Deep mutational scan, measured.
Amino acid sequence: KSPLTGYVRFMNERREQLRAKRPEVPFPEITRMLGNEWSKLPPEEKQRYLDEADRDKERYMKELEQY
């Protein structure tokens, strides 16, 4: 499975939280809201997602080498 970027990891995590709080909001609007939230997120909060993405990318590269 391909590695996910930090942005995609953030979107996946927050999308479920936002949909639970506001189920009436259409999917494209949720994506737009989360995109704005990501762009305003402080670098230190973004870093968690970026670090997870880096670890996932390393895992993926190792799997490719073994293939």
Results as ranks from 00 to 15, higher is better:
residue 11 M to K: 03
residue 62 K to V: 09
residue 49 Y to I: 02
residue 19 R to H: 03
residue 31 T to G: 06
residue 45 E to C: 01
residue 53 A to T: 12
residue 24 E to Q: 06
residue 64 L to E: 11
residue 1 K to P: 00
residue 63 E to S: 12
residue 8 V to K: 07
residue 11 M to S: 05
residue 23 P to Q: 07
residue 27 F to P: 15
residue 1 K to V: 02
residue 30 I to A: 10
residue 61 M to C: 11
residue 23 P to I: 05
residue 20 A to E: 10
residue 3 P to D: 07
residue 19 R to Q: 08
residue 29 E to P: 01
residue 42 P to L: 01
residue 61 M to F: 07
residue 30 I to P: 01
residue 55 R to Y: 11
residue 17 Q to W: 06
residue 7 Y to H: 00
residue 10 F to P: 01
residue 66 Q to V: 09
residue 7 Y to E: 13
residue 26 P to I: 01
residue 12 N to E: 11
residue 24 E to C: 07
residue 3 P to I: 06
residue 17 Q to M: 10
residue 38 W to C: 00
residue 2 S to T: 14
residue 48 R to V: 09
residue 16 E to N: 09
residue 30 I to Q: 08
residue 21 K to M: 14
residue 56 D to W: 01
residue 30 I to M: 05
residue 30 I to C: 04
residue 2 S to E: 09
residue 5 T to M: 11
residue 16 E to Y: 00
residue 58 E to Q: 09
residue 20 A to K: 11
residue 31 T to K: 08
residue 66 Q to Y: 09
residue 16 E to V: 02
residue 9 R to D: 01
residue 19 R to P: 03
residue 27 F to Q: 14
residue 58 E to S: 10
residue 60 Y to H: 14
residue 8 V to T: 10
residue 25 V to M: 13
residue 39 S to P: 15
residue 53 A to N: 06
residue 15 R to E: 10
residue 29 E to G: 02
residue 10 F to H: 02
residue 24 E to Y: 06
residue 10 F to R: 02
residue 17 Q to R: 03
residue 48 R to G: 05
residue 23 P to H: 02
residue 14 R to C: 01
residue 7 Y to V: 08
residue 42 P to R: 05
residue 13 E to Q: 07
residue 8 V to F: 12
residue 62 K to F: 07
residue 56 D to G: 08
residue 11 M to A: 11
residue 22 R to P: 05
residue 60 Y to C: 12
residue 19 R to T: 11
residue 17 Q to K: 10
residue 28 P to C: 13
residue 26 P to C: 03
residue 15 R to I: 13
residue 17 Q to P: 06
residue 55 R to S: 11
residue 47 Q to W: 03
residue 24 E to T: 07
residue 3 P to M: 08
residue 63 E to N: 06
residue 12 N to Y: 05
residue 1 K to C: 00
residue 55 R to G: 11
residue 44 E to W: 03
residue 21 K to I: 08
residue 15 R to K: 14
residue 55 R to A: 11
residue 16 E to L: 04
residue 24 E to V: 05
residue 59 R to T: 12
residue 65 E to D: 14
residue 65 E to W: 04
residue 57 K to R: 12
residue 63 E to C: 07
residue 66 Q to F: 03
residue 67 Y to F: 12
residue 3 P to Y: 13
residue 43 P to W: 02
residue 48 R to C: 02
residue 62 K to H: 05
residue 27 F to I: 15
residue 41 L to H: 00
residue 42 P to F: 00
residue 25 V to R: 06
residue 6 G to S: 04
residue 27 F to V: 15
residue 7 Y to I: 11
residue 25 V to N: 00
residue 50 L to E: 15
residue 66 Q to R: 07
residue 13 E to D: 05
residue 2 S to L: 12
residue 61 M to G: 14
residue 64 L to S: 14
residue 2 S to G: 04
residue 21 K to P: 00
residue 6 G to C: 15
residue 13 E to F: 04
residue 5 T to R: 05
residue 48 R to P: 03
residue 12 N to P: 00
residue 43 P to L: 04
residue 57 K to C: 06
residue 44 E to P: 06
residue 14 R to I: 02
residue 44 E to R: 06
residue 26 P to M: 04
residue 62 K to W: 04
residue 10 F to L: 01
residue 53 A to M: 02
residue 22 R to C: 15
residue 21 K to F: 03
residue 28 P to F: 07
residue 33 M to T: 12
residue 11 M to D: 01
residue 67 Y to H: 03
residue 14 R to N: 02
residue 59 R to I: 12
residue 54 D to Y: 02
residue 9 R to L: 12
residue 63 E to L: 03
residue 9 R to I: 09
residue 66 Q to G: 13
residue 11 M to E: 12
residue 64 L to M: 12
residue 18 L to Q: 02
residue 54 D to A: 12
residue 64 L to D: 12
residue 50 L to P: 02
residue 24 E to G: 14
residue 49 Y to E: 09
residue 22 R to Q: 13
residue 64 L to Y: 12
residue 60 Y to Q: 13
residue 3 P to H: 13
residue 62 K to L: 05
residue 57 K to W: 03
residue 20 A to G: 09
residue 14 R to T: 04
residue 20 A to V: 10
residue 59 R to M: 10
residue 57 K to A: 08
residue 27 F to M: 15
residue 46 K to C: 01
residue 28 P to Y: 06
residue 57 K to E: 13
residue 44 E to G: 08
